[in-house]
Design a protein around this nucleic acid. Structure first.
Lengths: 339, 339
DNA sequence: TGGTATTACTAAATCGTATTAGTAATTTAT
DNA sequence: ATAAATTACTAATACGATTTAGTAATACCA
């Protein structure tokens, strides 16, 4: 018992010896090679020996010839204090699992040294492909050696479009959020946008405007405020928005953290949610969105789906050159009670 | 360029040929074997060839003989909608990195089939050890084949103590939270506990009582309420607590989500935080704790540290039998503005 | 001056599997 | 009845590294 982990694991040869056949035969039986005939008794003897010895093939030895490691690398570029990273890993892993592959995860905390070392180590392990993920949608500079292996960027893109990438559909997300508010009969819809010059900021605004336009509503610049995307920014911007003449009857917030501040502001002003003012957030940060009162209607970022898509895309283009397309994934509406 | 990924990667033999030396020599140079003498010119020639060919050693081939895969398995048992999983992975990975090892991550979503398959696949890849993690502190039933490899349980423990494990120090956490409130001069401290029969529930209560006792304060059962650990549970329990005669001047909440509800209740009752009532949470769920107003003082679960500890522990006991100890890690106080 | 050390290398074995090329015995086809 | 095909296996090789055991040439020492 105690020495079970110090003893060398059984090899195919051990199995062969116990079953009284050649190692080759064991290999054929184990891999169930239908193009080679093995008698049923022999098969049985082999499987018995396999079970007796608790034999497990050595993946390193198996993969040595084919150079197919059955490993997919996942590099996440930054620290994240959200569950988003988990969702990416889950999506990627679930898809990898379908292909009997495992995920090699390294998180670089933005450190370029680690970033390069991570790619190097992964290449040494002969990963079949690499997913390079950032934790919010942005432009990225993946390390050059990545070009040596099939690779997709996740939640980011290379300025020069030298890699395929998957990103959330920010425009559709902004539009969906706005439409959810419109569907509740709101006409004056405020938008509290972020200040950072990132795709989310531009895209969601574009979506907001597109939704208004589609509903034949004018775009009113006084209804759009920009603030740092946290609860205090949301609090202040919402207060400002509501104290204007002709305040909105609905507010679309750049993210859920901002929405938290909006809730506080509205409560302070004595407005009820959603009766006086409907609110929609973005990100679907569970701990916030599900636990605010009333629970926050929001738009979810498709992290799980992006992870899934990345692995499947890489599989489809295995061996060949993956076209450097930019794939966009829908951000679904999560309906709760605030709209 | 385009065929760079279809071409077979260069081997040590390719390097040897280009440098005009034997493959053995290349191996010696690359591994910088100081016990073997190689002339400087030769070394230089070899490194030149390595760079020219962009040679990277094949980890599978290298590790085949030693059966040291440089891989550590991390199995996470459940879906989580928190950042906790990320912290575990980060801690484990940072520690693994120090040892030039990589993390193989599988998340089983609680599915026993996947759980077993994950262990099997990891063993086939000859992981050097496995970390089996759950997403909240509880008793667990890890799959039997885990006994075949050095393993530690993270955030959980085996009823029969057959595995070493790391868990948060719930008692100290509860005590720390209570003491933080006592340090602010509060004497009547309420505790909104969870209802689930899990270590966190028992431990934090014990810590709360220990802190009171150490401060020579009586334990008043009317100050302790139990509720489902979400914001609505927190809201109701806090309301009930505050409407009692002689209500508390401070509330320690089982977790941050509950604290969110407590904030709402206190606001509704016109009590200010922290002046009228100080609040302390648990878990340090960033999106909540940092974005509530005022920002929530809370106790952090040591997920990062547990991941780190697990990897280091496994390294220390590499090869040998790891003693099935239960290691407990401190939950630090995160001071913000609510206490 | 002969013997031992040291330097600078190389040939060959090895790890555990998959695959290729056989071989001997039996069955089928003509 | 004999050639051809099929069945049921095995021996040997390859994958890409590390390691062991050597070898030839030069340096050192008594």
């Amino acid at each position: 018992m105690a020495d079970s982990r110090t003893r060398r694991p059984p090899t195919m040869n051990d199995v062969a010896q116990r079953a009284g056949v050649s190692q080759t035969t064991v290999s054929f039986v184990i891999n169930d090679r239908s193009d080679i005939s093995i008698s049923d008794e022999t098969k049985e003897r082999v499987w018995e020996a396999v079970n007796d010895l608790d034999y497990r093939p050595n993946a390193m030895a198996r993969n040595l010839r084919s150079s197919k490691s059955q490993l997919i690398g996942l590099i996440s570029d930054e620290i994240t204090t959200t569950e988003h990273a988990v969702q990416i890993v889950r999506g990627a892993q679930d898809a990898a699992w379908e292909q009997d592959k495992l995920l090699l995860v390294v998180n670089t905390d933005g450190n370029p040294k680690i970033k390069n070392a991570a790619v190097r180590t992964m290449l040494e392990h002969r990963v079949e492909s690499i997913i390079y993920a950032t934790m919010y949608h942005r432009s990225a500079n993946p390390p050059a050696p990545l070009h040596g292996v099939p690779c997709v960027l996740l939640d980011c893109y290379a300025e020069d479009r030298s890699f395929p990438s998957v990103v959330p559909d920010e425009v559709q997300g902004g539009r969906t959020a706005t439409e959810a508010l419109l569907a509740k009969g709101r006409q004056r819809i405020g938008f509290l946008n972020n200040v950072d010059p990132i795709p989310a900021t531009f895209g969601r605004l574009a979506g907001y405007r597109a939704a208004l336009e589609a509903a034949d509503l004018p775009f009113d610049p006084t209804l759009v405020k920009r603030a740092i995307s946290g609860s205090s920014g949301g609090y202040e911007a919402a207060t400002e928005l509501m104290l204007q003449p002709d305040p909105p009857t609905a507010i679309f917030c750049f993210n859920d953290r901002m929405a938290m501040g909006v809730y506080d502001a509205l409560r302070k002003l004595g407005r009820s949610i959603p009766d006086d003012v409907a609110v929609v957030g973005f990100d679907n940060e569970e701990p916030i969105a599900a636990h605010l009162y009333p629970p926050l209607t929001t738009v979810r970022l498709p992290h799980y789906e992006m992870g899934q898509w990345a692995v499947n895309f890489l599989e489809e283009h295995a061996g060949a050159d993956a076209p450097p397309i930019q794939h966009v994934i829908e951000c679904p509406l999560i309906e709760r009670a605030s709209a």
